[in-house]
């Protein structure tokens, strides 16, 4: 069996015996329900009036239809995903330092690169599962709320945007792993995640979001307005370079840095 796969199975065992899968699953469950709730309010203006501040926020979403709803899901996974997917990456890497189990992984017949790759593989797989869960649950919630304007083309387009946004957001979890490794725990990656989310808003507002990797998924989801929801090739390349930087940086850190 391939060393990375062996290590991946061990990582799965550690991960699924922890509370992180449950916590992250509960965190993403909120997304479709909030989206459905907004749609419900938009569908019923009288209820919206009675809701006060929440209805005011809900109006931002525009109209109660499937394109708006799917756009909302894509935006939520682009912004919320930075935190939730980042949390998954920071835990998978940072826990080895916090629990002081890292030393058990450093002198094994399996190379450190394989171990790092298996951890990234788990981050990717779990974040894809979370994203798929959000979308599928989103469809169910949308049907229950009876959002109007459902069509195959709309769903297909919504799915494409959602998948692109999810993948871009997942790709951005590799630098979090690097910060977890350098910072030897959870604190540094959390600080890094909050910093990037805040900075992404500022940079996007300044009009340079397409050049800042952490703004790109949200822009692609249409968070800055559907007119701005155009994904430039340069933006994708910037996200890929950032992701590669995180991946290679983490591997090099595990391979060459002193592990005290």
């Amino acid at each position: 069996m391939n060393n990375t796969f062996i290590s991946f199975l061990a990582e799965c065992k550690k991960f699924f015996r922890s509370k992180v899968p449950l916590v992250t699953m509960l965190a993403v469950i909120i997304i479709p329900f909030i989206g459905g709730f907004f749609m419900l309010i938009l569908k019923d203006p009288k209820l919206a009036q009675r809701m006060g501040i929440i209805s005011a926020k809900a109006q931002i979403m525009g109209t109660a239809d499937w394109p708006s709803y799917l756009g909302l899901l894509a935006q939520a996974v682009s912004i919320g995903g930075l935190i939730i997917f980042g949390f998954v990456a920071s835990w998978i890497f940072g826990r080895e330092y916090s629990d002081r189990t890292i030393k058990d992984l450093l002198a094994l017949p399996i190379s450190r690169s394989s171990i790092v790759m298996s951890k990234f593989l788990l981050v990717f797989v779990w974040c894809v599962i979370l994203s798929a869960f959000v979308f599928v649950l989103g469809l169910v919630v949308g049907d229950v709320v009876d959002i109007p304007g459902k069509g195959e083309g709309i769903l297909q387009e919504g799915l494409t945007v959602f998948v692109v946004c999810s993948l871009l957001t997942i790709l951005l979890s590799t630098p979090v792993a690097l910060f977890a490794s350098i910072g030897r725990g959870y604190l540094s990656p959390f600080g890094f995640m909050i910093f990037t989310v805040v900075l992404a808003q500022i940079v996007a507002a300044a009009g340079y979001g397409h050049l800042f990797p952490w703004s790109v998924p949200a822009l692609a989801s249409g968070a800055a307005g559907s007119d701005a929801a155009v994904l430039e090739t340069a933006s994708v390349i910037i996200v890929l370079i950032t992701s590669m930087f995180g991946l290679i940086g983490t591997m090099l850190w595990w391979r060459y840095a002193d592990q005290n």
Partner: peptide, 14 residues
Amino acid sequence: HSYPELTVRENLEI
């Protein structure tokens, strides 16, 4: 140190 959420047997199996 061992993985706290795993049992003794599971830690050894890993």
